[in-house]
Amino acid sequence: MLSHFLQYEFLQNTFYTGLLIGLIGPLLGSFIVVRRLSLIADGLSHVTLAGIAFGLFVEKRFGLLFLTPFYYGTAFSVIGAILIERLRSVYHAFQELAIPIILSAGVGLSVIFISLAEGFNNDLYNYLFGSVSAVSRNDFYGILIIAFIVVSVLIIFYKELFMLSFDEEHAKVSGIHSERIHFLFIVLTALVISASIRIVGVLLVSALMTLPVAASIRIARGFKQTIIYSIVFGEISVIGGLISGYYLEIPPGGTIVMISILILLLTMSGKKLWLNMKRKKAIL
């Protein structure tokens, strides 16, 4: 792997991108999980797919090459995020309704652009389940910028976001601009999804943001610890998934997710064992 890694630029791009999304996915995911917004990630990933399909269609039709489909995906994802927020305020009493609306619109648009673009069908598999060879240098720079934005915004607004996540009413009463902060957060989510999609795929991108957090929450004490464990689990999954995916010739989306599931099972049974031990000690 190492010689291949040094030899092929695409492997380097993929690996570095993997390290970045292993960081920002679980980092943002920690907030997504505690705010019970896990499904938004799924909705937005399908909108991102529509953007990518649109990009491919434009590329085929007009041969515009300076923006790769990745950038169209990012734009669609951000627009989708804004629409979800609008829909959530329109259907105030049925807020989860926004997600199936946006998700199906994303799939519908994807199908249309995919068939208009023709020939894109060969790539479809890669878009759905991820690929080790899909990240260009140009895309990597885009993802690097996204990672930088996401990490800085989360550091700068950490205390407000945490407050909002824990107790929205309290945040509002204290004069925090909860709507603006929430909006910023949703846009960040859209960015992280579009950054992650080439490696883990449309169908599994939300897993990268939620599974490491689900494992972390079982064993962490406090929110900062939850974030740290989530990132560690995320990185282990991404690195392990990329390497095993490469050797087994399986799309990395599948291997990354299965490693995350394995970690989740380990933390669950580990916690059970630990609790049993504690109980026995208490009885003695």
Binding site: E160, M163, F166, H170, S174, I176, A220, G222, F223, T226
Partner: peptide
């Protein structure tokens, strides 16, 4: 997953 300290600190945000 929030500690007592983290929760009380939100009072200062």
């Amino acid at each position: 997953p929030a500690t007592v300290k983290e929760v009380v600190a939100t009072g200062l945000t």
